[in-house]
Design a protein around this nucleic acid. Sequence first.
DNA 1: AATCAATTCTAGGGTGACCTAAATCCCATC
DNA 2: GATGGGATTTAGGTCACCCTAGAATTGATT
Lengths: 232, 232
Amino acid sequence: MTASPEPQPLTGPVEDYLKAIYDLELVGSPASTNDIADRLAISPASVSGMVRRLADQGLVSHEPYRGVRLTGDGRRAALRTLRRHRILECYLTEVLDYPWDRVHAEAERLEHAASEELVERMAAALGDPVQDPHGAPIPTRDGRVEESALRTLAEAAPGEQVRVRRVHDKEPARLRYLAELGIRPGCHLRILDKAPFDGPITVWVEDAVGGATRAVGVGLAAQVYVESEGQA
Amino acid sequence: MTASPEPQPLTGPVEDYLKAIYDLELVGSPASTNDIADRLAISPASVSGMVRRLADQGLVSHEPYRGVRLTGDGRRAALRTLRRHRILECYLTEVLDYPWDRVHAEAERLEHAASEELVERMAAALGDPVQDPHGAPIPTRDGRVEESALRTLAEAAPGEQVRVRRVHDKEPARLRYLAELGIRPGCHLRILDKAPFDGPITVWVEDAVGGATRAVGVGLAAQVYVESEGQA
DNA sequence: AATCAATTCTAGGGTGACCTAAATCCCATC
DNA sequence: GATGGGATTTAGGTCACCCTAGAATTGATT
Ligand SMILES: [Mn+2]
Ligand SMILES: [Mn+2]
Ligand SMILES: [Mn+2]
Ligand SMILES: [Mn+2]
C-alpha cells in the first residue's frame, strides 16, 4: 500500500469535467464526448482536447471513439467537488437564506475556490447534512455516496402515492415554478390522473397550504424524482 | 451623463492586479512595475504585459517607464473587490470562527468567485461591518472609503498611549504571534520603553488578561498601525 | 557629457482552455 | 458487404497569463 499522495489542486474546468463525467457515468455506460460537451455547453472538439489532458493526468481512461470513464483518482476528485458543491448549496440556503433557484449557480463557482477547511466548517455548522436543497446526496468526507436509483414523476401511475426525493437543479425558472406548485424534496404527492398522449399529470400536493391539486406537464415531471409510498 | 454600463466581469488575476495597484497608489505616487511584481510574486516582465492589457481595457493609465495609475473604472473595480475581500474576511471570522491568520488566504480566492448578492447577504448578516478583522476599512457599496493615514507602532514615543487600529494581514505566522501578544485592532497600548539602535519596543497591553508587558521588535512594530490617544 | 546600475520593456516561449473546419471512424441500414 | 449520417478526433487558431533573456530607458554619479 502506498501512502495516498496529497491530491494536487485541480483547475476549475477540470473539476467541472470530472463532475460531468461522474454524473453521466451514473447510468452505467461510459460518458460520451457529445454528452460531456452538451452538459458543459462547449464544443465536442474542446472535449476531445480536454479528455486527452485528463487521461494524461490519470483522472480518466479514454478508449477513443468509445467514451470516457473516471479512474479511482478521478472519481475521488469528482466526489470531493460534489461534496463541496452540495454543502455550499445547503449553507447558502439554510444560513444565508439564499434563493432556492440561484444557489446552484453560486455553488458552481464557489466549489472551485472554497478550501476543504471552509467547507468542513460549513458542514459542521449545519450538523453534517446528508443531502442538498434539491435532494441530491452529499458524499462523505471519505468519498462515499449512495446514489439511489429513482423513478421520475412522469413514470408514476394514477392512484400512486409518492414522496418527492430530488429535483433537477440547473434551471432557475423550473425551480421557481416547482416552488410555486409546492413541489420540493420531501413533499408528498398523490397521482390523481395522467392524461394520454404525454398529457399533463394531475397530482394532489399534500404539503401545499391545505393541500392543492396541480397539473404538471410530462417535461417537468421527468425532472422530478420520486419514491413510491403506496397505492391508494 | 451616460448611464453607467454594467461592469463587465473581470478575471481573477485582473482583480488582483487592480487591488495591488490601488494599494500601492495609496502613498501618492503611481505604482511601479517592480512593486506590482513583488506584491503579486510574479516577474516584472509579466506585469508589463498585463499592464498593457489593463490599459487596453481602460482600467489603468500607463506612462511607460513612469508607472501606472488606476482610472475611474479601475478604481471602482478595485474597491468592489476590496469590499468583497473584507466582508468575506469578516464573515469567515465572525460567523464561521475561521482562524484569524488564515482568513486572508481564503478570501483572496473567494473574492473572485462570490457574487455581489452573496457578499451583500453576508454583509447584512453582520450588520454592515465597517472594517475587516485586521482593521482595514470596508468600502461602501457605492465605492467610498476613508483611508486614514496612520502611524505605525514603531514610530510611537515612550509615554504615549495608543490604540491599535490595523495590522498587516498577509503573513499567518506574524498574525498568530500578534494574537499571542494580545495585540489586535481595537486594543490599547502604552509605550513603556523604546530601546536604542532599533531595539525592541516595550509596551503595556491593556486588554491582555490583567494587562501584560510585552517586548516587540521594530520589524513587527512597523506592521502595526496605531492612533494616538494621549501622553502619560 | 559620459557612464553605469537599476528599472522597465520587448522578444520569443509555454500551457490551459476554448473555437471552427476538416478529416476519420463507427455502425445501422440497405 | 457497401454506404451515409452521426459521433469523434485532428488540424490549425485565438486569448489570457505566465516565464527567461536580452534590449532600451532612466536618472544618479562621476
Ligand atoms: Mn463549477
Ligand atoms: Mn443541488
Ligand atoms: Mn485574490
Ligand atoms: Mn484583512
